[in-house]
Design a protein around this nucleic acid. Structure first.
Length: 487
RNA sequence: GGUGAAGUGGCCGAGUGGCUAGGCAGAGGUCUGCAAAACCUCGUACAGCGGUUCGAAUCCGCUCUUCACCUCCA
């Protein structure tokens, strides 16, 4: 038997996982800044953490804990630049679209969830917004000022990095002197130390999104919301904090500093960082204009194929995107769906299938730092064994039930790479589907008669004409079957 | 310059001291009127150079290359 181990970015080792509070595992994942449509990078991140959460829930059921998953929506505040310059990204987008900043945030929030839903990403238990938690953020800043970890300067409040021992321990950037020597140009005089970061910013003229605070009108600094909201909903010490690798520094190191300085307690027990998506070997980036927009991608590929593609690599590995690679995944994905469909429709016989050993291997893989590629490889080994058994006849009632339960649990509930039975079997629902079924039954009957009388010209014609219209016929031992085929 | 990650068969992508990852593509075969699907068989890969070891793709050193972060980014 294996137990869940998680690779902790802070210690750079795999550690056994147990929630700090019995009965509840807490996880916080950095959410999107909603000023544009989601792209493949978002998909990789949130699909990966979706499986993390699903597996935690699975394990938690046996271990007796529930999971609370918080993922924020950043709808305000970040500058485009840490040198205290630039414009709020949401405000900028609002100006370009000539709408209210909050309109921008709401529009892209909806767009984000729409895409995530299609990818089968389950919604977090709590999805707090930064603008909805300004008082909590101000309170945190006040606490840091009171305890001497932060100072006010001309309406801005900065975190005093020198007041917190171990700043930079997550990213390994602990030597502030060395960091500064090669540092940026013109340092702001407001800061005592160039590494100090903003907790609260005074609103400059023309800034729309601003709030009243003890330091005047302003807006929160760009690391603050995660600390404030994570601690509000999950407690001073949370079990797991996830995010993209590029956020290790400065974002997560700043979160650690401001949270631990405020509470005197460890902020996060397990840090998890997922790797980047590259396109033809280079990272997707705004300046490179090589973003893969999800809505566009969904036009070419089933969202579940994208999910499957993502889970075929490990979350800590970079994922290189190319259409060739996704097409290869699509073939594999369809093979899995076909096998599942075949199992559901199969007649019972006497065949046996040892399902338990596959279940154990999948469990071991997922327990080993959520190794989804290995889990999927085991599922394919299982598919092979399953098809082999079905070729020889059918499974007995117990084996069939076990096989279905296994696929439903692991491929379905945990990995989320199985289409629903309704979708697989009917394709559509309602009257038109019923009509289609009836018409197809007639066509298959006619074709069967043609084949019986060796009129292969007619039988092939029926098959070819249907294929042209996206319906594929397969002759099996049990008779002909049909299915709709995409693209 | 600093901090990390990584280089695996035609492609994608796991693994990490000795035992076939898996998927896609390809070759041959079984089945089939044919086709499709499925199944069986087949590739003997781990950047290079040294070293440790009975044994290394897996550990150590060096070299080369790539990527990320150090400015917003999942």
């Amino acid at each position: 038997m294996s137990s869940l181990h998680i690779y902790n970015s802070l210690t750079r080792t795999k550690e056994p996982f147990e929630p700090i509070n019995p009965g509840l595992a807490t996880i916080y994942v950095c959410g999107p800044t909603v000023y544009g449509h989601a792209h493949l990078g978002h998909a990789k991140s949130y699909v990966s953490f979706d499986v993390v959460v699903r597996w935690l829930r699975h394990v938690g059921e046996e271990q007796g804990y529930k999971v609370r998953y918080v993922q924020n929506i950043t709808d305000v505040g970040h500058l485009t630049d840490d040198a205290d310059e630039g414009e709020d990204k949401i405000q900028k987008q609002a100006r370009q679209e000539r709408i209210e900043p909050m309109e921008v945030a709401q529009y892209y929030t909806r767009s984000f969830y729409e895409d995530m839903d299609r990818l089968g990403v389950e919604r977090p238990n709590i999805a707090p917004t930064a603008t909805g938690h300004i008082p909590e953020q101000i309170a945190l800043v006040e606490r840091l000022v009171e305890t001497g970890h932060a100072y006010e300067s001309n309406g801005n409040v900065y975190f005093d990095v020198n007041s917190f021992e171990g700043y930079g321990k997550l990213s390994g950037r602990t030597d502030q002197e060395a960091l500064q020597s090669g540092g940026r140009v013109a340092e702001r005089s407001d800061k005592r130390n160039p590494s100090d970061f903003a907790l609260w910013k005074m609103a400059e003229p023309g800034h729309i999104m601003k709030w009243q605070s003890p330091w005047g009108e302003g807006y929160p600094g760009w690391h603050l919301e995660c600390s404030a909201m994570a601690m509000k909903y999950l407690g001073d010490t949370i079990d797991i904090h996830g995010g993209g690798m590029e956020n290790k520094f400065p974002h997560h190191d700043c979160e650690i500093a401001q949270s631990e300085a405020a509470t005197g307690k460890p902020f996060v027990r397990y840090w998890m960082h997922n790797n980047m998506v590259t396109v033809d070997g280079v990272k997707m980036g705004k300046s490179l204009k090589n973003f893969v927009n999800l809505k566009e991608l969904f036009g070419k590929f089933d969202p579940l194929v994208i999910r499957f593609f993502i889970l075929q690599s490990h979350y800590r590995s970079p994922l290189d995107f190319s259409e060739v690679a996704i097409k290869a995944s699509q073939s594999g994905f369809e093979k899995l769906q076909e096998a599942y469909k075949r199992l559901v429709e199969s007649a019972e016989d006497k065949g046996l299938l040892d399902v338990a050993s596959f279940e154990q291997k999948i469990t071991d893989a997922l327990n080993d730092d959520f190794n989804t590629p290995v889990a999927i490889s085991v599922i394919f080994e299982f598919v092979k064994a399953l098809n082999s058994a079905l070729d020889k006849g059918g499974l007995d009632a117990a084996s069939k039930a076990a096989a279905l339960a296994m696929l439903d649990a692991f491929a379905g509930e945990v990995l989320g790479i199985l289409k629903s039975r309704d979708e697989l079997l009917a394709g559509e629902s309602g009257e038109s589907a019923q009509t289609l079924d009836d018409v197809m039954a007639v066509l298959l009957e006619l074709r069967k008669e043609a084949r019986t009388s060796k009129d292969f010209a007619t039988s092939d014609k029926i098959r070819d004409l249907l294929l042209q219209r996206g319906i594929e016929i397969k002759d099996t031992k049990e008779g002909a079957t049909w299915s709709k085929k995409k693209g």
